[in-house]
Design a protein around this nucleic acid. Structure first.
Lengths: 181, 181
DNA sequence: GAATTCATGTAATCAGTTACATGATTGA
DNA sequence: TCAATCATGTAACTGATTACATGAATTC
């Protein structure tokens, strides 16, 4: 089973949901971490159901509109736990188009490269600010067994990542200045 | 055209190569930044050739073995330059299976989560050491117009990224300890 | 002579995105 | 009544991996 399946199991472990609500979760709470469109979610729900890892009940919204509210089964919970505890080797570092462009930037001027670094720095600074706003919503550190504790750790991961990106780009710009004059 | 095409153009801009040599470059020099298997490279070379962005000459190794040595064309160079200078919006943060597992780790014990964090920390520390060894190969900062200067900046990106990962995981472990006792 | 590396391709499959397709419900 | 959102699916296509397939050259 692929990661998407486990992501769905994890969300359904937190609470029962429809496919539509799952797709909203991928756009909001999980946005920084994983994503999936509804066109991928619905087929995946079907195969999770066929594997006995989730179940569903049909509910009626209004007078006729049917929606399927999915629930994780005990088999599903076991699968999820096994996956969460599986500490395999970290995958290869993710592909990074910006660093690839930088790698090949000796085909353009040093000035053009500097502009690239600056515009990218601005983007990461903005991201960092957004994440820090999310961090401020936590008034205090949640208790260790609260799911909010995990949310907080994951959020911290994004903050550290964006801070590192900013520091790296600032260092690059500094090195360009050093060698430029 | 996709990123792989530009990666190939960039490598061929540095020097002419066979498909086989390109695949070795993706395993060595570009490993941290981009990757591709030969099964993806050969078809891509074909379409780059059909688009007039690269050219090739057949050379003979030994007595019969034919190899195609690819060269970038002037059209290819222009395409490459345009791509390197294109500062579009940074893509969505890459999917991160480890952070996803952490996000759902309230389905396992706090102890199990701590083990995950520790084992992951060890992996990133190892990666960081490897990158720092590469950094030590640079005796001094290369001149700004040298391609080695870009190599150095890209390497720094990996180092900052791994450092941030280590710091994040150490912070997580520290927070677990704080809330654990 | 045997193993490793050099060298080039195709086929099947998987994960993921974009586009196609439909229709009900809710709130302005 | 009109727009936004809720709700569920399928189809076509792209990017990427794994497996299939072949054979020459080099090195031990």
């Amino acid at each position: 089973m692929g990661t998407l399946g486990y992501a769905i199991l994890g969300l359904l472990y937190r609470r029962s949901m429809t496919g539509y609500e799952l797709s909203k979760e991928f756009e909001s709470g999980l946005f920084e971490v994983w994503s999936a469109k509804h066109s991928q979610i619905y087929p995946e729900l079907k195969s999770l159901y066929e594997a006995g890892l989730i179940d569903y009940q049909v509910e009626i919204s209004g007078t006729v509109l049917e929606k399927k509210v999915y629930t994780i089964t005990s088999d599903g919970e076991r699968m999820l736990q096994k996956w969460v505890q599986d500490s395999g080797a970290a995958p290869q570092a993710p592909k990074d188009e910006f660093r690839l462009r930088l790698f090949f930037s000796d085909c353009v001027s040093a000035n053009s490269r500097r502009q690239q670094l600056e515009s990218r720095l601005a983007q990461h600074q903005q991201r960092l600010e957004r994440l820090q706003k999310d961090q401020n919503k936590f008034e205090e550190l949640p208790p260790q067994d609260d799911q909010a504790f995990n949310d907080y750790l994951v959020l911290l991961g994004g903050i550290f990542r964006e801070q590192a990106a900013c520091q790296w780009l600032e260092t690059c710009l500094e090195l360009c200045r050093q060698r430029g004059e």
